[in-house]
């Protein structure tokens, strides 16, 4: 009836609060997603440690894109890209792909015998359950670049005890 502000303010506040919470709830997965792509921690893998040999990769340039959720771990699409130029200057030699949970953690190595003009690769991988995939690019001057992607897998691709 009356336009008493004190009577309405709790409702207004709660509506505002509700919008804030809703907004945050909507933004959170987005932020988490960006965080996943840029997550700068490497899984503990002997093969990965051996490759890096004490070097700390730079989390830039290299991009690894994979779906956040994969229904079928038997074939999960994967996209690797890295902007050039690779010649002159440090040349891209190889991009190594590591899996945190697969029984064979060193999944693949993409080799570039000649300096590539465009690094834009698609492949499909098998994943044994939800995990982080790491790509490491090794340059001719021994510097390394890293990128990672976290994937949730509904049906694991490797039928074993992993």
């Amino acid at each position: 009836m009356s336009d008493d502000p004190t009577a309405r303010s709790p409702i207004r506040l709660s509506r505002r609060r509700l919008l804030q919470v809703a907004g945050a709830a909507l933004a959170a997965p987005l932020a988490a997603r960006v965080g996943d792509v840029r997550a700068q921690t490497l899984p503990e893998l002997p093969v990965l440690t051996a490759l890096l040999a004490g070097r700390t990769p730079r989390w830039e340039r290299l991009r690894l894109e994979m779906p956040r959720f994969a229904d079928n771990g038997q074939a999960v699409p994967l996209h690797l890209s890295m902007p050039g130029p690779f010649a002159p200057g440090p040349m891209l030699q190889a991009i190594h792909l590591f899996s945190e949970r697969n029984p064979v953690p060193d999944m693949a190595v993409f080799e570039f015998p000649l300096p590539p003009d465009r690094v834009d690769i698609d492949a499909r991988v098998r994943l044994a359950g939800a995990q982080r995939i790491v790509a490491i690019a090794v340059m001719s001057d021994a510097t390394t670049y890293a990128a990672s992607a976290d994937v949730e897998v509904t049906i694991a691709g490797c039928l074993d005890a992993s």
Binding site: V104, M107, A108, F110, E111, L114, D122, V125, L127
Partner: peptide
Amino acid sequence: VFAVRMSPGIAANPY
């Protein structure tokens, strides 16, 4: 010009 070392981690019928 390009080579790939593969493992069982590459899906069947590699693309």
